[in-house]
Amino acid sequence: MGLFKYIVDANEYTNFFARLNLSSPILSNLKDNRYILNQDSQLVKQFKIPSQKNAAFTQLVKQYQEKLYWHIRRMVVEHEDANDVLQNSFIKVWNALDNFREDSQLYTWLYRIATNESLSFLEQKKRKQTSSFDDVAEVYGNTVKADSNFNANQLEWKLQLAIQQLPEKQKLVFNLRYFDEMTYEQISKILDTSEGALKASYHHAAKKVEEFIKTH
């Protein structure tokens, strides 16, 4: 967007659109994204200043903990596991943020770390269980059903059960696109996969999920 070349920070951005008197949803969304990017950039800069490091990190955790938690929880299913993986992810962030280069977005970088931690965790868990994929899907399904809020007739829960039937990579793509509403470009940066392959994977996963919900 060439338009953004003239926008230096969030305040300037807000003033710019206020003068134009535009309030369409598209511009509002662009404004939010721009604000987040600016805020992320500020956080990274603050983190690199020793006296502001802790405050910047606390702010970063507050800002992303819930999003990352749900991203992880959708993968590992159990709350205790999600909590452990989230802790490890933020520890990785703490250790690596000094070297973070702003040629990628902080948002996608955080998701990448959380994704890798989730996959490592699942790999370790699988090795301990030494069970086949079908068994793993069944185990995850049973964990979903064990939730105190579970309601077998509710579509949202059927959706959760359907997602557990997907292979890990498809599950990741589906979650990032469907729940986190990311662009294929963003998902591509997180998973290191071409946008075309991601699109095919998402469509395949969505059809499978829909089919499962219809038949269960």
Partner: peptide, 9 residues
């Protein structure tokens, strides 16, 4: 389908 999380925390 609503996308809000349904799992308990």
């Amino acid at each position: 389908i609503a996308k809000a999380p349904v799992q308990s925390v």
